[in-house]
């Protein structure tokens, strides 16, 4: 299990390859990466992500540890950035390794659902007009937790 919280960009391809390599008993590797999405009209200048140093690492470790108890997993990777990112930049990634794909897919979805609403990150959008706004949590993100 590897949990990384950093401001620097990460190399998604290299991380995914390193995570998938050298495993002989894991038949399934699932990866997900979240990307800064523009409003659709080129209006987003940047996304700024604030976090709670001290709590973030522990919260992510607890979420990953819970996933390991619920599914048959060989390994889990979570990388989550904070700071300023431009549209197209990767914000975070999760990877799961499991003997079978069902466990790998479900665990990856569980990790995503929980780190959306239970890991102490807050997103702020900076529009090209100079306006800023905090991204509001969605009810559907909270509802997503009830399925687990």
């Amino acid at each position: 299990m590897r949990i990384v919280v950093q401001d620097a960009p990460f190399d998604f391809g290299a991380e995914a390859e390193a995570f998938a390599s050298g495993r002989h008993d894991m038949g399934a590797i699932v990866t997900f990466t979240g990307v800064v999405r523009d409003f659709g009209n080129g209006g987003l200048d940047a996304m700024e992500i604030e976090h709670y140093p001290g709590m973030t690492q522990k919260a992510l470790e607890a979420i990953a540890a819970e996933a390991v108890t619920r599914w048959s997993l060989g390994d889990v990777l979570v990388i989550h950035r904070y700071g300023r990112m431009e549209p197209g930049e990767k914000i975070m990634m999760v990877a799961t390794a499991a003997p079978h794909r069902k466990d790998a897919f479900e665990a990856a979805e569980y990790l995503m659902d929980y780190l959306k609403s239970r890991a102490p990150f807050w997103k702020k959008e900076h529009a090209t007009t100079g306006e800023t706004s905090w991204v509001a949590a969605k009810d559907e993100d909270e509802d997503a937790l009830t399925r687990w």
């Binding site: 989550h80 975070m92 780190l115 609403s117 239970r118 102490p120 807050w122 905090w134």
Partner: peptide, 10 residues
């Protein structure tokens, strides 16, 4: 003790 809005990670 820390206060904050609902989290928006991922």
């Amino acid at each position: 003790v820390a206060f904050f809005p609902p989290m928006t990670g991922g």
